[in-house]
């Protein structure tokens, strides 16, 4: 049975549309408001939502997501509470949910238990930032047993061989990191992204989502001819930080604004990116 993530891509492909993927930190600024944020994102046509699991040593994140993790941890947010949060979201929404974590909280919870509880609460898969393809087999095995997606990252520094391995281990989609560096918004897109996206196509038929540094409709417009989806993280998290009283309202507005980038580029509409690149 395909996951919600896979079904989502299938539907988008049929309609000739691109995916808007949003990242937020689970439990930022607290669990109730975080649930509202996720539901508002879904309502505003966020196709897939990445739910960050806060970690005390977020080595791959810039200051915005670091602060979001600190806020969540300060409020006592942890993995069991996040799984429960997903359960509550599932009562109201079928939006595809991908858990996004560093390895240690999941190791501590137990890989097998994590996979079972993830599927039980209604999440669709997981991405682990600091789990390299070389070390990933035990995790992937448990996730497969529970029919969950595993998404891996590829970066501009990845060799062809690494890209191939990441594509083999990924289901749902492949996540392309647009540039070297930590998460965070940028004015300009990196020029390393185009060569990376070109290289990817030789190794996978999976949908490709690109992230890191995407924060404006123009970025979406620039990228859509080359990708299947775009990931926006820090810009949304920043919006939550700036509007902690009612973050749901503001992130929904932001998603609508960002999505204008998709329609700005009407030539890419109706064609799949795979066809464009082929």
């Amino acid at each position: 049975m395909p996951t919600r993530i896979v079904e989502c891509w299938n539907k988008l492909h049929q309609q000739g549309e691109k995916a808007f993927i949003g990242f937020v930190m689970a439990g930022d600024p607290d669990i109730p408001r975080s649930i509202d944020v996720v539901l508002a994102l879904a309502e505003a046509k966020t196709d897939i939502i990445e739910l960050g699991i806060p970690f005390s040593e977020p080595i791959a994140d810039g200051p915005v997501i670091q602060r979001a993790g600190e806020r969540a941890l300060k409020n006592g947010v942890n993995l069991p509470l996040i799984l429960d949060m997903v359960r509550q979201i599932r009562k109201k929404s079928d939006v595809p949910l991908l858990l996004f974590s560093y390895l240690n909280p999941i190791l501590r919870y137990g890989l097998e238990r994590f996979a079972k509880d993830t599927v039980a609460c209604g999440a669709d898969g997981a991405l682990i930032t600091d789990l390299s393809v070389e070390e990933a087999d035990p995790f992937v095995t448990q996730m497969r047993l529970n029919n969950l997606d595993t998404v891996f990252l590829v970066a501009p520094t990845s060799t062809d061989e690494r890209i191939k391995r990441a594509a083999e281990l990924s289901t749902g989609f492949l996540y392309a990191v647009s540039r070297t560096g930590v998460t965070g918004t940028r004015e300009q897109l990196s020029d390393t992204v185009t060569p990376l996206l070109r290289r990817l196509r030789a190794f996978t038929t999976l949908p490709v989502g690109v992230g890191f540094g995407i924060s404006r409709p123009e970025h979406l417009a620039q990228l859509t001819p080359m990708v299947d989806g775009v990931v926006v993280g820090s810009a949304l998290v920043r919006c939550i930080e700036d509007h902690q009283e009612n973050p749901a309202l503001h992130v929904a507005q932001m998603v609508r604004w960002l999505r204008e980038g998709f329609t700005a580029n009407s030539t890419s509409k109706g064609k799949s990116s795979s066809a464009n690149m082929a």
Binding site: A60, L103, D130, S132, E135, V154, A155, P156, T159, R162
Partner: peptide, 12 residues
């Protein structure tokens, strides 16, 4: 031991 790092650092 091992090598648990973000993908960007793996090749380096």
């Amino acid at each position: 031991g091992g090598r648990f790092a973000p993908e960007t650092l793996m090749q380096p």
